Each structure stands twice: as C-alpha cells, then as structure tokens.
Computed example of a mutant assay.
Amino acid sequence: MKARRTTSGLPRAGEEATQGRRNPLGSATGRGSRVRAWPGGDGRRRASAAKQRAELLELQQGIHYRRVFVTLLGVIVAVSAVVVLLGTIGLLNETRSRPLTSAEQNQYKQEEIARRWQAWPTTGVFPDEVKYLGLDRAQQYARRIGIAPETECAKGVDAPVADVLRSHGCVTMLRATYMDQTASFVFTVGVAVLKDEEARVSAGEELTQDDRVGVLPVAFPGTVSERFGPEQRQRTSWVGAGPYLVFSTGGYADGRTRAAIPPEEILHPELWPAGKSIGNQIAYFLADPPKVPPCTQGNVC
C-alpha cells in the first residue's frame, strides 16, 4: 500500500533538511557556510590596548617629571633672586655715601701722607724756597740749589745710619741742597722713606745722637755748594714725620771743614738753627694733615 501524502501542510523530514540548508536570501546552498571568524582578531585588540596603556603611563610619568622639574627650577630661580636681592642691598649699603668713622678718617690721613713722596713732584717735596729764622729770629728764605737723583737709602747716609734704615725697611732716599739768604751757608736735606709710620718710629729709636753722622751732602758744580762734602758738614740732625725721617746737615759755603773750625764756633748762632729750621719745614710739608672729606663719597652723605 502506497504511503499517503499528509495534508497538514507541514514539511516532511527530508523537506525540513532541505529548508534548513537554504540560503538566507532564499536560494538553497546545498551545504553549510564556509566563512569562519579570524582567529587573531582578539589578540591584536589586546596588544593595541596594552600599547595604549603603556603610552598613557609613559605620558603620565613625563607630565609628573616635567612638573617636578618646573617646580625645582622655580625654587632655584626664587632662591637666586633672593640672593641677588640681598647682595644688591648689601652692596648699596656698603657703597652708599655715609659719614667717615674716626678710624677711617685717620686711615685716610695716613695713606694720603704716605703717598706724597710719589704723588707730589720733587719740587713739591723740596720747594723752591723754604722759610727759616735768622739772626734775631728774623724770617728769611733759603733757596733751593738743586735736587739729587733718587737713591738707595744706604747710599745717601753714613754707614751707622744706613744699617738702621736698612733693618727697618727703608724704601728710598730723596735729597736736595739749599743755601741761606746770604749765600754764606749750604744745607742738604734728605728724606728717608720708610714703609710705614711704625717702622719710622722704630728706626728713630735706634738712630745715633752723634751729630757728625747723618745724611751725605749733595754738591752741585758751578754753584755755592760745589765744595760742600762730608768733611765740610758742621752738624747733622733728623726729625720724624709720618713714615719719613727727614735729615739735615749744614756747612760753610767757602768749603771750611769741621776740623778747621774751633769747637766753640761749631755751635754757630745762625748756621745750625737755620739748618734745623729748613729740615723741619720740609718735614712739616710732608706730614701736614690733609683735609679729610666728611663722607665716603665726598662732601655729601
């Protein structure tokens, strides 16, 4: 007996299988789809995400380091600015004009006096004319005959004096020769420059009181002093002023020696006072206290 076709409208088993293999567009394929998912897609996404996370972390670290650097740089700039400001304030306080202290005024005087032998011309150290007291204390003027070249201290004085000057650091010796107003006497004045006033005081304490030794005379040919030498010296003396020892010696313009003069005439009433007065005047010029400015930068504080 033949099988009967069902009338319910439902597909048979074979038809179900055929329908299950139909193309989604409606046509039958006859077999299953061959398209499969790409096996490496998830791995790439994970690698890309990891790379992005690493880059983000690196960027965050860079931002952190930059903030630290900027902060440190700001601190350094601020500290430097404070140091510069404090230094500027200190410099302004130090250099601004202010009244001189007593110690600074005294130092100014000492320095000014100590450099005069170099700062002044030789005609400033040894003026053309020097006042002195003559007979009856009459004021007279000694005229300068000539100025000798600067020389070593030991070469401008007698040996006993040279030893003292050398041991106390004598710098140099300046000498000039004068004649009195009557041209009867000649005098040589020698300025020994010591390194400072303390050295001058120490040297003065060791100098001999022998009036036969001291500065060596300087004679100038063709003048009234041409016969004035060591043997013609009648007396010598010295006086201290600042860092200077000022020596003076005098004799007769006619060339008489000390040995030719009777002892009672050596203390001539006019010769020796004139010689000492000339030496003292030059010492006074050198050590005359200068005018001290009231402020560090002049007269305005």
Rank of each mutant, 00 (worst) to 15 (best):
K2H: 08
K2I: 13
S8A: 03
G14S: 11
E16I: 12
G20Q: 09
G20T: 06
N23D: 15
L25G: 04
A28L: 09
G30H: 12
R31F: 05
G32M: 09
R34N: 08
R36Y: 13
A37P: 14
W38V: 07
G41Q: 15
K51L: 06
K51Q: 10
Q52N: 07
Y65V: 06
R67W: 08
R67K: 09
V68D: 04
L72F: 06
L72V: 07
G74V: 11
G74T: 11
I76K: 01
I76M: 14
I76R: 04
A78N: 04
A78V: 15
A78Y: 11
A81N: 02
G87N: 08
G87M: 10
T88P: 00
N93M: 05
N93E: 04
T95N: 09
R96Y: 01
R96I: 00
R96F: 02
S97H: 06
E111Q: 05
E112N: 02
I113F: 03
R116F: 11
R116M: 11
R116G: 10
R116K: 05
W117V: 02
W117D: 04
A119R: 03
T122M: 13
G124N: 09
L133D: 00
L135Y: 13
D136P: 00
R137C: 00
Q139K: 06
Y141W: 10
R143P: 00
R144F: 07
T151G: 08
G156A: 15
P160L: 00
V161N: 11
R166Y: 05
V171D: 07
Y178D: 09
M179S: 06
M179Q: 08
D180F: 02
V186A: 06
F187K: 02
F187D: 12
T188C: 10
V189D: 12
V193L: 10
L194E: 02
D196Y: 04
V201D: 11
A203M: 04
E206L: 15
T208G: 08
D210H: 10
P217S: 07
V218K: 05
V224T: 13
P230D: 08
R233D: 09
R233L: 08
Q234G: 03
T236R: 05
W238R: 04
V239P: 00
Y244N: 07
V246H: 01
V246Y: 02
F247N: 03
S248A: 13
S248R: 04
D254L: 11
R256T: 04
A260M: 14
P263E: 11
E264W: 03
I266R: 15
H268W: 13
P269H: 11
E270Q: 13
E270V: 15
G275D: 11
G275Q: 15
I278T: 12
G279P: 04
N280S: 14
Q281D: 12
A283H: 11
L286Q: 11
P289V: 08
P290N: 08
V292N: 07
V292L: 07
C295V: 12
T296M: 14
Q297P: 10
C301T: 05
